[in-house]
Amino acid sequence: MRIAILALEGSVLSAIAGLADLFWITNKAIAASPAHAIKFPEKTFETLIVSADGAPVWDTEGRLIHIDSSFQGAGQPDVVIAPGMLLGPDLQPLNLADINLAATWFRKMYDNGALVAASGTGGVVLGEAGLLKGRSYATTWWVSHMLQERYPDAIPARGKMLEEDRGVLTTGGCFSWISLALNIIEKAAGTEVANLTSEMSLTDNHFLRQHLSASPGSIHSGTPFLVRAEEIIRMQNPSINAAQLASALNTTERTLQRKFKALSQETPKEFITRVRIETACTMLISTRVSIRQIARDCGYSEETAFRKAFNQIMEMSPAQYRQWMAARASDHRS
């Protein structure tokens, strides 16, 4: 399987190098296992780091990223991946001309049969390519506002860390490229090889690739006011009410109401409830914590109030959601 990893000015070097390394580790793991080596006598994964013209580009911290090929020289890869990238001070994509060049190439690769994938802010490339339109996509909370604003026809997959919709694979979060790579490895070489790679590279950090928390200092995308509001709800006070949120944001309740309506088409109460329920969805998928404890962790003093809010937003109970997502994961593995 040939995998092209996109590098743009401002790309996150750790994601590019990490993706390449994880596929390299998988090749080594297969070669070292007689049972797997028989099934895959040739090198299973070949990676190329690509830029538009094949020239090196600068990463987020001003270091040069080595490039293996231009878009033209890469031929027709089986998979093309857009890792995360730096956003501007206005929390919007930088270098749109370069992004649109990459988007055109991604669209061509998709039309020719490639699986296209993105992690975090790399979703902008797919959005500019028109590959999110009408599709369900996964992202992380501090990126979601920007993506929804730019691509209103796309469908955010609430509470999911990885989503595939008609040949478009998306994940969210600083280290979500790990989930993305393991999913691709499983597609190409099977569950046993993906598990072997996970064991070799992540050892006991089983949930690392699923739910690493971003530090407040790493938040660099999305609508700033909404991102700050989510940060307060998620990380500081899940049980906060509208008046307390207004105070924490150094504004009045009336101004808070007006801003939320303009930015998210929600009331402050609706916004707070949605953030709580999205957090609950992630916990229901990635932990075995009881529903009662999840309700408390998400700011609900009464479990009945949590269940009612969850049903209203997700149109199923928390227990049904957990079972449904477990069944989907099982179907994917089989």
Rank of each mutant, 00 (worst) to 15 (best):
G130D: 01
P152W: 10
M146K: 05
I155G: 03
S136I: 02
E163M: 03
K133S: 14
Q148D: 08
Q148M: 10
L147R: 01
T140C: 07
K133D: 13
R135F: 09
L126E: 01
L126F: 13
P152C: 13
E149D: 09
A157F: 07
H145L: 10
P156H: 14
G123N: 15
K160H: 08
K160Y: 11
V143S: 00
A129Q: 00
G159P: 06
P156R: 11
P152Y: 10
A129V: 05
Y137T: 00
E163Y: 05
Q148E: 09
G123P: 03
V125E: 06
A138I: 03
A129L: 02
A138P: 04
M161T: 15
Q148A: 11
H145F: 10
G122T: 10
Y137N: 00
A154S: 10
Y137Q: 00
Y137W: 01
G134F: 14
G130M: 09
E163F: 15
T139Q: 04
L147P: 01
E149H: 12
G127A: 09
L132H: 06
A154I: 05
G123T: 08
T140N: 14
S144I: 07
E163A: 13
I155Y: 02
G130C: 09
G122P: 12
R158F: 07
D153V: 01
T139S: 02
M146C: 10
L126S: 09
G122R: 01
G130Q: 15
K160P: 13
Q148R: 12
P152A: 00
Y137I: 01
M161H: 15
A129R: 00
G134R: 12
M161V: 15
Y151S: 04
D153K: 05
G123C: 00
T140Y: 04
D153H: 03
A157M: 12
R135W: 13
V125Q: 00
D153I: 12
G159K: 04
R150P: 12
T140M: 13
R150F: 04
P152S: 09
G130T: 08
Y137A: 00
A129C: 07
V124T: 14
V125W: 02
E149I: 11
L132M: 07
G159L: 14
A129S: 04
W141V: 04
P156G: 07
L132I: 03
S136R: 14
T140H: 11
G159A: 05
G122A: 10
L131Q: 04
L162D: 13
M161R: 15
K133E: 09
R158W: 11
G122M: 09
G134E: 08
G134A: 07
H145R: 14
E149W: 09
M161I: 15
K133A: 06
A154C: 03
R135Q: 10
